[in-house]
Structures are given as C-alpha cells and as structure tokens.
C-alpha cells in the first residue's frame, strides 16, 4: 500500500444540533482517485470544507503529507497543495477565463514565486490541458455551465496541487460532456501526478474512474473499498444505491 497523503482522523463537524460529520476516518493514498459518495446531506461537501479549511471541525484532526492542517486558514491549505472545485460554480464573472486561471497560479502552491507574465503563460498551459484555451479572453460570465465547471477545474489545477478535491464536477452535464470531463480528469491526473478525491452522484462515472470508494451516510462512514466491493455492500445498497444489480452493472462497464 502506498503512503497516505491525506489522513482524516476522527473528524466531527456539527451545525447546531445537526452532526454533519461524526468521527470520520479516511486515509487517502498517494496517486489514487478516491470516490466519495452518499445521499444528499451525507456530509460529503462538509468534509471537503473541513479538509480545505473553510470549516473548522469540532473534533478530530486532518493531516496532509504528515503535517496537521486542522483549522488552518483556507488560503494556507491551498498553498500547501490542496485545491478544490465548488459544487456550485464560483467563477470570477467579470474576469476573463485566463485571468480566473491566473489567480489560481498566483495564489496557489507557487504563490509569490511567479511573475505576472510567467503566471499568464502557466495559466494558458492549464487552459490548453483542459481544452479551454479557445475561450481564454472571454469573460467567465459568458461560459456555459459545462465550461464553467471546466474553468473550476482549470483554476484548481492552476494552483499546482498535489491533492485535488472535485465537488460534483459532473452534475448537470449531458452524457457527452460527462465523457469529456472524465477524459480531462484522467489525463490531467496522469500528467500532473495528482491524488484526487471526487464527490459524485453520477454513479457509472465514479464507479468507473475511482480506485476506491468511501460511502458517507448521515455523517458517518458506512463503507469503504474497491468499487465492486462497495456496490455489493448491503448497507450501501440500502442507504444509497437502491439497486445492487444496477450498481454492479456500472462497475462492469469498466
């Protein structure tokens, strides 16, 4: 087993009386794609918010590359090498696609080490990688939802992260766009040697692309393992998948 790049240890997050995460333990190994699934309200996005520093957990710890990052400000965590996308896209609408991506370069892992012109070049390379270079000088507000999702990905990649958190990048896309997005994710993951955690509801996609799956339900981890193991898990089927045969069919598409 390779080394864990990220360790989530006993993390608990409450919102008033609601326990969004209850003593969750997850190890993420270097170089893998970890799928994070579960019904709405299971705590997936909350977990992302805890890892990326948006929320401070009430209990537990998060380690990234052996260093504790619990409760650090979000911008510091980004600079250490964790980048994320948002489920609800948050482009800087009045900036061009290129400028949006430049922010990622200028304030990511290379923060303070690149000049404006270098940042421009690097951002352009990222846009080429994800196939958005043709829209570089468009305002972000002019993009389609699919393109905005890709821009979220580009901005995250521009930070040159080691760990990438993808929050429902496939939601609301048509099958062709999903296919394209998956290809981009796979390619960039290889090219940049990334570790990826992806929250996803598009089951056939996540079952296909993930090396391992973690299932959250009401803030608790109810299953963990290879896609085929998870699809066979009775608890998971009851809580989320609903139909075991259908779930297994998704896995077999691989």
């Amino acid at each position: 087993m390779p080394e864990a790049i990220l360790t989530v240890e006993n993390v608990t997050k409450r919102f008033g009386g609601l326990v969004a995460l209850n003593k969750v333990n997850i190890d993420v190994y270097d170089g893998e794609i970890l799928g994070l699934i579960g019904p709405n309200g299971a705590g997936k996005t909350t977990l992302f918010n805890v890892i990326s520093g948006v929320y401070k957990p009430e209990g537990g710890k998060v380690y990234f590359e052996g260093v504790e990052i619990t409760g650090k400000p979000a911008h510091q965590i980004t600079r250490m090498g964790i980048a994320r996308t948002h489920q609800i896209v948050k482009p800087f609408n009045d900036m061009t696609v290129l400028e949006n991506t430049m922010i990622g370069v200028l304030f990511g892992r290379l923060a303070g080490k690149v000049s404006m012109s270098e940042a421009r070049e690097k951002a352009m390379k990222v846009l080429e990688l994800v196939g958005l270079d043709g829209k570089a000088s468009e305002l972000a507000s002019k993009l389609t939802l699919h393109e905005k999702r890709i821009l979220e990905l580009a901005r995250a990649l521009a930070a040159e992260p080691k760990l990438l958190l993808l929050d429902e990048v496939l939601a609301g896309l048509n099958p062709k766009e999903i296919e394209e997005s998956l290809k981009i994710i796979k390619e960039t993951k290889e090219a940049k040697q990334l570790t990826v955690i992806m929250v996803e509801h598009v089951m056939h996609a996540v079952m296909n692309i993930a090396d391992r799956i973690v299932v959250l339900h009401y803030g608790e981890k109810i299953a963990e393992g290879k896609p085929v193991e998870v699809a066979n898990d009775i608890k998971v089927v009851e809580a989320y998948l609903g139909d075991r045969d259908l779930a297994l069919k998704f896995v077999k598409v691989k």
Binding site: V54, M95, G104, F107
Partner: peptide, 19 residues
Amino acid sequence: MGLVAINEDEDAAEVMGVP
C-alpha cells in the same frame, strides 16, 4: 488581482489561496 478576486467572490478567492 487578489483584490479584484475578493470583489468578485470572497469565499472562492480565499479557497483559491488569496489571503
């Protein structure tokens, strides 16, 4: 650039590394 990002969406800017 960081200031303009704050103007556009402060939460997104922070997550992208803008202090």
